[in-house]
């Protein structure tokens, strides 16, 4: 499995609203498809995404099977200080994909 792709500016000024983009490799099996034998392929998706900055929640999503494979998210964050963004994607099977990005705020 490929690592998540995350775009966070390396530097910003205090009070800036920055752009964050995140892309993770996942088939997002919708539970609507059938295999060659006609059996329903069970749902297996990323159902939750969370982003925190220095431990405080910034943005999150509750995700349904209608989100495309390799889910892409773009959102904003207001930064007041240097620190670390933490990103978490939760799979239906309970596993969590985690990643971090730091930003220098002056």
């Amino acid at each position: 499995m490929a690592k998540p792709r995350i775009k966070v500016p390396k530097k910003a000024s205090a009070g800036d609203v920055i752009k964050i983009k995140a892309l993770v490799s996942h088939t997002m099996e919708s539970g609507q498809r059938k295999d060659k034998e006609g059996n329903v392929i069970p749902q297996k998706i990323i159902n939750k995404f969370e982003c925190t900055f220095n431990g405080t929640s910034v943005f999150g999503c509750d995700i349904d099977p209608a989100v495309s494979a390799n889910p892409f998210l773009e959102f904003r964050a207001k930064v007041a200080e240097s620190g670390t963004f933490k990103f978490m994607w939760t799979d239906d099977d309970g596993s969590v994909i985690e990643a971090e990005k730091s930003i220098e705020v002056s």
């Binding site: 490929a2 690592k3 792709r5 775009k7 983009k21 892309l23 490799s25 494979a69 892409f72």
Partner: peptide, 15 residues
């Protein structure tokens, strides 16, 4: 090139 989902494959190729 960030939003292009094909780049996930390219990064996998790099590994």
């Amino acid at each position: 090139s960030f939003a292009n989902p094909g780049m996930l494959g390219v990064e996998q190729g790099e590994e």
